[in-house]
């Protein structure tokens, strides 16, 4: 088992609720191993997520992340910051350009609303060719 994606850049889980409005940036190198292992871990066997020839036959230059993984990485990005006691209530993502193997997914987040423990984080996941995923994550953080 290799290093999980982005492990080096994720930093320590903060023990208490952070006060800052900006989440630390997370860069995930989208190696073929990352793309394939996440596709299979989400039970998605569509060939374009693991077979480069199948991806090219569809006009894609490379295999690319599946949507279930995009949702998973967005969730992970926010809980890395919010800590294991937070509860994710919902993730709302607008999907953009594909995230191809060989690219880097850069996740950035900003707290846009905070009402007691109810927090809304705007998340932006970009790859070199544009916006891959843009949206919000709603969560409850312990008081």
């Amino acid at each position: 088992m290799g290093t999980p994606p982005g492990a080096a850049g994720s930093g320590a889980v903060p023990p208490t609720r952070p006060a800052q409005a900006e989440l630390p940036e997370l860069r995930i190198e989208l190696t073929p191993t990352t793309v394939v292992s996440t596709a299979l871990a989400t039970m998605d066997f569509t060939p374009v997520h693991h077979d480069p020839a199948a991806a090219r036959a569809q006009g894609a230059p490379e295999i690319f992340l599946n949507i279930l993984t995009t949702m998973g990485l967005v969730e992970r990005y926010v809980t890395d910051w919010a800590g294991p006691r937070a509860r994710i209530r919902g993730i709302d993502v607008r999907l953009g350009v594909p995230a191809y193997a060989g690219d880097t997914l850069v996740l950035r987040g900003t707290v846009t609303a905070r009402d007691g423990g109810e927090v809304t984080v705007a998340v932006h996941g970009a790859v070199s060719i544009g916006d891959h995923a843009t949206g919000t994550v709603r969560l409850t953080m312990p008081g």
Binding site: P5, G6, A7, L40, A41, T69, G72, P84
Partner: peptide
């Protein structure tokens, strides 16, 4: 799933943490 995503959240995999967690 957690390993593939690089998600180290103990709420999902650490029984000890989970028992005392939310």
């Amino acid at each position: 799933w957690a390993e593939a995503m690089g998600d180290t959240n103990p709420a999902y995999t650490d029984e000890e943490f989970a028992a005392a967690g939310p």
